[in-house]
């Protein structure tokens, strides 16, 4: 690689930075920096040049065509026209709405805050009942039509998956026990916020549901999770009852699901809901901002619920003051779910 470094002219590297994929861009950027440094003129690549070219959305939607190979075939990219396949458009639009929330409200430039491409694959697997983040991209199944509809149907699911990417680049919460449940919690928080942002809903107008519309009409349930009333989203003869607790006294100790990451997230989810309701208005303006700063700057790989309560209070105090209503709302939210700092 080092030979190539010095024979690739800088103007070509700059083109690669503008138009390449993430891997190519990173290579070109490193190469350019290396060679500029080599020539003793590293200031010639200014930060503005680099940030200027990547301050925009770069979405790519692929189709796995029922297989399990990622990413699949490219079917829509940034600026391209609508697909005839609504699943493709949902993945594209949902990723765009999520990018826009983080960009417009929190001044974050994509998943890594450096303009990373947002990659989605639809039609993954056969009758596949899931959506996930694989560490690099989002993946959506079509559902089996019995229990689940397609997973792109709910915009909060899309925002949930993209937020997993952001968490990976920020707090990097390990996916196990309480840090894992916090990882899930952050995805639900911004999943719900993106939906509210798109619908321009205030906190008392929002449904606070995660995955509303995913269940077919055969299932007795409204969604996968409820932040307003954890444990109430479904109660079905086949699926059983929504197992989410809303208070620490009902914390579920289990080895399944990476230590119950999708179960115990109900506790911090409800704390966020209570905080947002106490503050009123739009959830993304205050509660969302506090949670975002905590995720970006203060939470760490192994942070637990108590630590999350401490750092969100700390952020509220720094931004709004010690005895502000914002600080009190955050403090009260956690206290009501059994977490006192």
């Amino acid at each position: 690689m080092s030979n190539i470094c010095y024979i690739t002219p800088p103007h070509i590297l700059r083109e690669v930075i503008k138009r390449g994929n993430d891997r190519q861009r990173e290579w070109a950027l490193n190469t350019l920096m290396l060679s500029e440094r080599f020539r003793g003129s590293r200031q010639s690549i200014s930060i503005t040049m680099v940030s200027e070219v990547i301050e925009e959305k770069k979405r790519y939607v692929y189709d796995a065509k029922g297989g399990y190979i990622l990413p699949g075939v490219l079917v829509r990219e940034e600026g391209g026209k609508d697909s005839n396949d609504k699943t493709v458009n949902e993945a594209y639009d949902g990723a765009g709405a999520t990018y826009d929330l983080f960009k417009n409200v929190y001044e974050r430039n994509s998943i890594d805050d450096r303009g990373m491409s947002i990659i989605s694959t639809v039609h993954y697997g056969k009758e596949y009942n899931n959506a996930f983040w694989d560490g690099r991209q989002m993946v959506y199944g079509d559902g089996d039509g019995e229990i689940f509809n397609r997973f792109t149907k709910s915009i909060d699911v899309i925002a949930h998956e993209l937020t997993h990417g952001i968490t990976q680049y920020e707090a990097a919460l390990v996916y196990w026990d309480q840090p894992g449940a916090l990882n899930e919690h952050m995805s639900d928080v911004f999943g719900s916020i993106v939906k509210q942002y798109v619908m321009n809903q205030k906190v008392d107008e929002a449904d606070w549901l995660i995955g509303e519309g995913l269940f077919t009409s055969k299932v007795n349930g409204i969604a996968l999770r409820s932040m307003k009333k954890p444990g109430s989203a479904y109660d079905d003869p086949i699926l059983g009852k929504d197992p989410q607790p809303s208070h620490m006294k009902d914390y579920v100790d289990t080895n399944d699901d990476n230590g119950g990451v999708h179960i115990n997230s109900g506790i911090p989810n409800h704390a966020f809901y209570l905080t947002a309701m106490e503050l009123g208005g739009y959830s993304w303006e205050k509660a969302g901002l506090i949670w975002y700063i905590a995720l970006r700057d203060l939470l760490r790989r192994r942070s637990n619920f108590k630590r999350a309560a401490q750092v969100t209070c700390k952020v509220a105090e720094r931004i709004f003051g010690k005895n502000s209503k914002e600080y009190n709302a955050v403090y009260n939210g956690w206290k009501e779910v059994g977490i006192e700092i």
Partner: peptide, 12 residues
């Protein structure tokens, strides 16, 4: 075979 996790967190 025990299936757990996923977006839904179902166990089977």
């Amino acid at each position: 075979l025990e299936i757990s996790g996923g977006f839904a967190g179902f166990h089977r």
